[in-house]
Simulated scan of single mutants.
Amino acid sequence: MDDTLRGAWPVAPTPFHDDGTLDLDGMRRVLDCIVDQGVDGLCILANFSEQFLLSDEERERLTRLCLTHVDGRLPVIVTISHYATSIAVARARQAQALGAAAVMMMPPYHGALLKGTAEQTFEQVARVGEVGIPIMIQDAPLSGVDLPVPLLVRMAREIPMVRHFKIECSGAAGKLRALVAEGGEHVVSPLDGEEGITMLADLDAGATGTMCSAMIPEHVRRVVTDHAAGDREAAVAGYARILPAINHENRQCGFRAAKAAMREGGVIASDFCRHPVPPLAPETRAELLGLLRPLDPVALRWGR
C-alpha cells in the first residue's frame, strides 16, 4: 500500500480567548475549517500551533480533542518533540492510541546550548520508533541541531517507522534532492515546510507535498497537484499568484498570519497570542489581509 504523504498538510493554529485561555470551541471550528479547505491531512501541536506556549496538560487535552473531533475525516499528524526521550515516547503512544496517522518530531533540544548529538538524536528517534507509529522527522532551524543527509538516510534505513521528512532548512531543495537520491525507497514522503515559500524549487527537487500553514492551503495544494500532474506551467502560475501572501506570512507574520485570517473570516473570535509573542501590528495585519482578499481563501469566508 502506498502511504506517501502528498499535497498540502496544514498546521492547525491553536486559538485562545482574549484572556489567554484555550478556546476549545474555536479549536473545533479551526479543524472544521481545515477539513473544508479540501486538504490532504493536517498537523497539530507544531511550532505554528504555538506548542512552546502550551502546558503539558493543555497539550494532552488538545491531542484528545483534535483527534476525536476530526474523527477520521482527515489523517492527523501529532507533533511530539521534546528534549526528554521518555516524554517523546509517551506522547507518541498517546497519539497512536487516539488514532493519529503519524507523529512529527524535531531533534532533542532545549534552548541554544542544550542539544542532542547526532547519535543521541538517532537513539531518541529509534526509541519512538519502537512505539510502532510512522514518524516524520522535522529538519527545522529552530532546533539548532544539524541533521545531515547521511544521518537522515540512516534513520530511514535502520528505523522502520521513519518514513516521512519535513525539510525546511536553508537550501531545502538541495537537501531534498540529495535525500531522495540517497534514501531511495526508504524515503517515503519528502515534504517541505516554511509555509511553502520555496515550494516550487522543493517540488522540482522531489518533494511530494508541503506542510504549510492553514492560511491558504487550498491554493498551496493546487500548486502541488498541478506539479504532480506534470503541468509545471500551471504550477508556476499558481505559485506566482500566492507567493506575495506567503512571503508576507513567512517574513512578517509567522504563525500569527493564519490566526489573523481565521479571525477575519469568523472561524475564531480572537487571534490572541500568548506573551511574550506580540500581536501583529495593525499595519502588518492590514497588509496581510490586502494580499489575501484577491485570493478569496476559505479561511476568510468560512464563518461569515
Rank of each mutant, 00 (worst) to 15 (best):
Q51F: 15
L179H: 08
P278G: 11
G303H: 00
Q120D: 10
A112F: 10
A207K: 02
G20N: 11
R157E: 09
A8Q: 04
L65A: 08
L142Q: 15
A205F: 13
E50V: 06
E182V: 08
D204N: 13
G20W: 12
G7A: 07
H219A: 13
C66T: 15
E58S: 09
L31E: 08
H186Q: 05
T225L: 15
L114P: 00
A97H: 08
D19H: 07
G38L: 03
H164C: 03
R28P: 04
A205P: 09
L74M: 07
L22F: 03
T85S: 01
R29M: 12
S143G: 10
A90G: 01
F122Y: 14
H248R: 12
I44Q: 05
G196S: 06
H17P: 04
T14N: 06
D40W: 09
L24Y: 14
R274W: 08
C253T: 12
K115M: 05
M27C: 15
V298E: 14
G99M: 13
G206N: 11
G206P: 04
E264M: 02
M106H: 11
E194P: 00
A140I: 15
A90Q: 10
V223W: 06
I77L: 07
D3R: 14
G238Y: 10
H219W: 11
V220N: 02
P108M: 12
V145R: 01
L151E: 05
A101L: 12
D18M: 03
L42T: 02
A299Y: 08
Q96E: 08
Q120L: 09
L147P: 01
V89K: 03
D271H: 08
I242A: 13
G290W: 10
Q96C: 05
M161S: 15
G171W: 07
D204S: 15
A228Y: 09
I268C: 03
I197H: 06
V298P: 10
A172Q: 14
L200N: 00
Q138I: 04
A261T: 09
L280F: 06
E158I: 02
A261L: 14
D40Q: 11
E58I: 11
T68C: 10
S189T: 06
P160Y: 13
A235R: 12
V35C: 07
V220L: 06
H110D: 12
Q124V: 01
R177E: 13
A257I: 08
A207V: 01
G111V: 12
L74D: 05
A257T: 09
T117P: 02
Q138L: 10
L67R: 00
L45N: 01
H275V: 15
I159R: 02
A46T: 00
A286I: 05
R285K: 14
R232G: 07
A235S: 14
P148T: 02
V236S: 06
K175A: 14
S189M: 04
G265Y: 04
H248T: 09
N47E: 13
K115L: 06
L24C: 12
Q37P: 06
L152C: 03
S270H: 05
L31T: 09
R91K: 14
Y109G: 01
A172Y: 10
A281M: 14
H69G: 08
L5K: 11
L151D: 01
